[in-house]
Design a binder for these strands. Structure first.
Length: 305
DNA sequence: ATCCAGGAACTGT
DNA sequence: ACAGTTCATGGA
C-alpha cells in the first residue's frame, strides 16, 4: 500500500486500471444503501477505527484517492488505518492487467471489461458485515435485502450527523451478540436468519471466530471450509465472503441467481445456464472467477445506472 | 394471484 | 453422495 499523509488529508495511490467513477456507479446501485453516501463525485463513509468514529470524504483525481476529514484530523496511526481500509475496500493491491488480458480473449467478458474498465471489486473488509450481509440476502430479492439491512443498521448501528446528513456504521458483533431472535424477527428477518446472525455475533464476540484467525490459515481452501462449518453459511455464502472479505480471486458462487441471470443476458439465452455449463465457462476464467462474477453482477445494474 | 428472489438446513433414500 | 422438502417474506 502506498499513500501520502498530509495530516489534514491523505492520498492513497491507485493503479492504472482504476476508475473511481466506475466504482461509484457500483456503489450507487441501491438508493437504500445506508453505509455510504454519494454526491457528485464524492463518496462519504463513516469508519470506526480504534474506537473513534471518523467521517471520510473520498474523491479521486486519477492518480490518487484523496480522503478528507470533514470533522477534523484523526491521529497519525488512525490515518494509516484509513488508508489501509481504502486500499482493501477498492481492492487496490490487485494487478488487473492480467484480468483484462484474459478478458480480451473471452467472448463473455470482453464487452464487460471494456464497458466497465477500471471497476474494481468493491470489498467488505469487515468479516462480520460480509457474513451478515450475505446471510440477510439469502433467497430474497435484493431490494428487500437492502430494506432489511437498512433496518438492521438503523436499529443497532452507531451514527453521526454532520451538516444535516446522518452517517451510519454497520452494527458491531458485540452489539448483535446481545439481541434476541424476536428482536430481529420484528425487523422481518426470518427466525432462521436471526439465529444464524446472532450465533455468528456471539462466536465473534467471545473470540471463537475472528478474521485474523482465518487469515492465518495457510491454505485458502481451509478458510472456506471453516466458513462452511458455521450454521447458515453454505457454499454460496462462503464464496461470497471469500470474494469480498478474503479477496480470493477464485471465489465463485456458482449457484448464484444473479450470476445466472447476467449470463443468460450476455449469452442471449432463453433460459438460465445450468451448473454444468457454468463449470465449462469457469475453466476459461481460472484465477479470475471472482472478477468475472463481479463484472457480471455489475452488468445487472445497467438499466438502473 | 403467482412466481421467484445474489440459499441453507433438514430429511429420507 | 444425492434429491426432495421446508423455511419465510416481500417484490414485480
Amino acid at each position: 500500500m502506498k499513500y501520502f499523509d498530509y495530516e489534514s488529508y491523505i492520498e492513497v495511490w491507485t493503479p492504472v486500471e482504476f476508475d473511481f467513477s466506475e466504482c461509484l456507479k457500483f456503489l450507487a446501485r441501491s438508493d437504500q444503501e445506508v453505509l455510504h453516501k454519494i454526491d457528485d463525485d464524492n463518496l462519504y463513509k463513516l469508519l470506526k477505527i480504534n474506537e473513534e468514529s471518523i467521517l471520510c470524504k473520498i474523491s479521486s483525481n486519477r492518480t490518487f484517492i484523496q480522503v478528507d476529514f470533514p470533522l477534523g484530523t484523526p491521529t497519525n496511526s488512525v490515518r494509516g488505518k484509513i488508508a489501509a481500509y481504502i486500499c482493501e475496500w477498492f481492492d487496490l493491491e490487485r494487478d488487473l492487467s492480467r484480468f483484462y488480458e484474459m478478458a480480451s480473449n473471452d467472448k463473455i467478458l470482453q464487452p464487460l471489461a471494456q464497458k466497465y474498465y477500471g471497476l474494481r471489486m468493491i470489498c467488505m473488509p469487515d468479516l462480520f458485515e460480509a457474513l451478515v450481509w450475505a446471510i440477510m440476502g439469502q433467497q430474497i430479492n435484493l431490494t428487500f435485502a437492502y430494506t432489511l439491512k437498512k433496518r438492521f443498521v438503523e436499529h443497532y448501528g452507531e451514527c453521526l450527523t454532520f451538516e444535516g446528513e446522518t452517517y451510519w456504521l454497520f452494527p458491531s458483533f458485540e452489539r448483535i451478540a446481545s439481541v434476541n431472535v424476536d428482536d430481529l424477527r420484528e425487523l422481518q428477518f426470518t427466525g432462521r436468519k436471526s439465529e444464524y446472525i446472532i450465533d455468528i455475533a456471539k462466536r465473534m464476540a467471545n473470540g471463537e471466530l475472528t478474521k485474523e484467525m482465518l487469515l492465518q490459515k495457510e491454505n485458502i481452501h481451509q478458510v472456506k471450509k471453516l466458513l462452511m462449518g458455521i450454521r447458515g453459511v453454505g457454499a454460496w455464502t462462503a464464496d461470497y465472503v471469500m470474494m469480498k472479505s478474503f479477496y480470493d480471486p477464485n471465489g465463485f458462487p456458482i449457484a448464484d441467481v444473479g450470476l445466472h441471470n447476467a449470463l443468460k443476458t450476455q449469452l442471449g439465452l432463453e433460459r438460465k445456464p445450468t451448473i454444468e455449463e457454468l463449470k465449462e465457462i469457469e475453466i476459461h476464467w481460472e484465477g479470475w472467477q471472482a472478477y468475472a462474477t463481479f463484472y457480471l453482477w455489475r452488468s445487472l445494474y445497467d438499466d438502473t445506472v
